[in-house]
């Protein structure tokens, strides 16, 4: 299996007024295509920072991060934006939808930055919203939707440019248990369709769907285990 994401001795240091605070302290790991990886650890462990680095939202202080063959440490901001737009789909705890755009427009937005024509954008966004079960909510603004519905819109948005990698940062954190389970099922389904999924969570219950669990503490990997249940490789 070729490794899709590879981190080599990655450090991230935040410079604050009181001095330097290390958030990631020499992490090396490798994630294969089709993996369902759970990044788990208490708050402050560096799991979100790690996700931000992989997601090209932030740059590492030291070390190399490879996405496919490219070392993203050497990419310009503009190229990083392209990587984010094309190869990665984000799902956030707080959904992060644009409040002034309706569900359909929110889902279609990432395609705008890839110069996709309006008609294609709209039909594709429509199709995805239908897939996540929001066919009758397309014209609704985010504040007219429930949390679960919002997260479905966010998932549809994450999928719209057909990325290889889905990064989910506490996707169920703001949802009730039942809705959270539904969202996790959607993620699992996506993994089964071949998407590589990185799930950041502090909830150990959610890791059971993953085929790989990486435990972080104080910016270091303290455990790297393969789950016997989840993951496309093992489950199929």
């Amino acid at each position: 299996m070729s490794s899709l994401i590879k981190l080599e001795n990655v450090h991230k240091v935040y410079r604050l007024e009181g001095g330097e605070v290390p958030a990631i302290n020499g992490i090396s790991l490798s994630i294969n295509q089709g993996d369902f990886v759970a990044l788990i650890g208490p708050s402050g462990s560096g799991k979100s920072t790690a996700m931000n680095l992989v997601g090209c939202l932030d740059t590492a202080s030291k070390g190399n991060i490879f996405l496919g063959k490219h070392n993203i440490q050497h990419l310009s901001e503009s190229d990083l934006a392209q990587v984010r737009g094309k190869q990665i789909g984000f799902i956030f705890q707080t959904f992060n939808l644009i409040p002034s755009l309706n569900a359909l427009e929110n889902v279609a937005l990432p395609m705008m930055f890839q110069n996709v024509s309006r008609s294609v954008r709209m039909s594709k966004a429509q199709k995805l919203l239908e897939q996540v079960g929001l066919a009758n909510r397309m014209g609704h603004l985010p504040n007219q939707l429930s949390g679960g519905q919002r997260q479905r819109v966010a998932i549809a948005r994450a999928l719209v440019n057909d990325p290889e990698i889905i990064l989910a940062d506490e996707p169920t954190g703001n949802l009730d248990t039942k809705t959270g389970e539904e969202i996790m099922k959607v993620l699992k389904g996506l993994n089964e369709q071949g998407k590589t999924i990185i799930l950041v969570t502090h909830n150990p219950d959610l890791t059971k769907l993953a085929n790989k669990v990486i435990k972080l503490k104080d910016g270091k990997i303290i455990g790297n285990s393969k789950s016997s249940v989840g993951g496309k490789n093992e489950s199929s």
Binding site: L57, E77, A81, R84, N96, F113
Partner: peptide, 16 residues
Amino acid sequence: TKEIGIMKSIGARNPD
């Protein structure tokens, strides 16, 4: 600010 972050996370470049 947050919206700008969202747009960037879904592929918006600085010029956009």
